[in-house]
């Protein structure tokens, strides 16, 4: 039986090392565009690395037992082993330590980071309503409003633009039911709750657009009724100068096309 233990231990160690290496190097993540997003992907990566040995241990024990300890005849019985103190105690200690480790990092450390810097250069106020996003840039006196036209006509929708390299605060609330303001490229979401204002901070890093990858979009992530799947709008992240230009363009367009847009809303 000592041999079984050694064989299982060796297989487990080898597979765990491979699993950890794989989890560490596996680039499964879609494009990301924020400092917080980098930390969140890192948290997922660390958790995968911690999960690999646990997964391998259970699977190796199970598969090895299935392969090695088959009954040869129907009524054969195994040895009456009721427990094994060193095994159970070390199991309890190890799982407790593991839970503690992952609580500390990425959990507590990651949370500290996400909450560490409640300041921002750019404030964006978001008000959700069935099934629009009203996005206001109070520093620029600009409000845009998405239309519930979904993915099929995403290119016709209003766009939420963000400047790369600046720290942004989103102030989110709702006019009716609960929605959730999620930008997958930023890896952040916060619910839009009527009656309260929730906040979300991020430092935007990379440029990108919905045409590159659909993670560059605002998505309502809390079921909010019929139009829920259509409560989405493209996000574009621009270099700061281009962002300023975008703001000016929007303002001009609104001045010129204000009448037309109102007409469209009637439909």
């Amino acid at each position: 039986m000592r041999r079984d233990v050694v064989v299982v231990a060796v297989i487990w160690i080898v597979l765990s090392v491979l699993g950890v290496l794989f989890a560490a190097s596996w680039d499964i993540y879609p494009p990301r565009a924020g400092v917080e997003a980098e930390h969140i992907d890192e948290a997922i990566r660390i958790l995968m690395m911690l999960a690999a040995p646990v997964f391998m241990f259970v699977v190796v024990m199970m598969v090895y037992s299935i392969w090695r300890f088959r009954a040869e005849d129907e009524r054969e019985e195994g040895p009456p082993i009721y427990t094994n103190r060193p095994f159970t105690v070390s199991w309890l200690v190890l799982t407790t330590v593991l839970a503690g480790v992952l609580f500390y990092n990425p959990g507590y450390v990651g949370w500290k980071f996400l909450k560490s810097n409640p300041t921002a250069d750019l404030v964006i106020q978001v008000t959700a309503a069935q099934w629009h996003w009203h996005v206001t840039y109070p520093q620029y006196d600009l409000t845009i409003k998405s239309r519930p036209i979904g993915f099929e006509r995403m290119d016709e929708n209003q766009v939420l633009a963000l400047p790369a390299g600046r720290r942004v605060k989103f102030e989110v609330t709702s006019d009716d039911v609960i929605h959730s303001f999620w930008i997958p490229a930023l890896r952040l979401k916060v619910d839009a709750v009527p009656g309260i204002v929730t906040t979300m901070y991020t430092t935007v890093t990379e440029t990108g657009s919905y045409e590159e990858n659909s993670v560059f979009r605002v998505q309502c992530a809390e079921l909010c009724g019929t139009g829920h799947p259509r409560m989405t709008m493209p996000v574009v992240i621009l270099e700061p100068e281009e962002f300023e230009k975008w703001i000016e363009e929007q303002k001009e367009m609104q001045e010129m096309g204000g009448m037309m847009e109102e007409e469209e809303e009637g439909h």
């Binding site: 948290a43 990425p106 997958p184 952040l188």
Partner: peptide, 14 residues
């Protein structure tokens, strides 16, 4: 475990 982890859950929730 990923969902219990605050940073990861910001993305993975819902």
């Amino acid at each position: 475990v990923f969902n219990s982890d605050l940073p990861a859950d910001m993305h993975l929730h819902d």
